[in-house]
Design a protein around this nucleic acid. Structure first.
Lengths: 101, 101
DNA sequence: CTGTAGTATCACGGTGTCGTTATGACGTTG
DNA sequence: CAACGTCATAACGACACCGTGATACTACAG
């Protein structure tokens, strides 16, 4: 239970999700992620480290560059399912509100 | 992206997950959840409020009691998938470690 | 060896959230 | 109405995390 919560926490930060989305189409080095996201280099580095520790992403140094890539693309399925549930919840909420009014 | 992160944040707290699990088998009133979880009443109330706002759970007053129930049991599927991915990540990590040693 | 680009880390201030301890609000019962 | 059980909220301290700016580290080029 504890560990599961920690796993969810990995995806509970907007900038971290942005970084992750960036890696959806393939490996990128840090600078590339920085440019694609507009986030600061230090911040991107931090989030990538977290994603690595969480086992979501793999770190692969290549020369003086460091590439990161998503290990199991199933995570995007998780994101998709969460998004779906979230939208359903919203509809629910509106329906409940409508039932009152 | 912002909103999705917030949605994940709902499940990123151990005690909140515990409360949610409690409601897996059906509606319960607050006191029942308190007894099942061993958490303080105030804390349970807080978490239930959050889950309600998130649209995960529905609040239904009945006499002097207040019952809560999971709206869309699909959330448990989300939890399951997350748990699965998490375990896979761990295996990955161990494999990577083994490759080094 | 020196410089430089790419990446990681440190220290810090700011903010948010957790859990607790009251206390308040509401409905029921006698 | 008075007392009680149930639930919600306020106020507070503790702690964790985020983002930034500065600085270290590393590999390669010249």
């Amino acid at each position: 239970m504890e560990a599961l919560a920690d796993y969810f926490k990995v995806f509970s930060e907007p900038n971290r999700l942005t970084v992750l989305e960036t890696l959806r189409q393939g490996p990128l080095n840090v600078t590339a992620v920085v440019e694609k996201t507009g986030l600061s280099q230090a911040l991107v580095s931090k989030h990538l480290k977290l994603l690595t520790i969480a086992g979501v992403v793999r770190r692969r140094p290549e020369g003086s560059l460091v590439f990161y890539e998503v290990i199991d693309k199933g995570v995007f399925q998780l994101l998709g399912q969460a998004r779906k549930l979230m939208l359903a919840s919203r509809r629910q909420q509106l329906d409940a509100l409508a039932a009152i009014l």
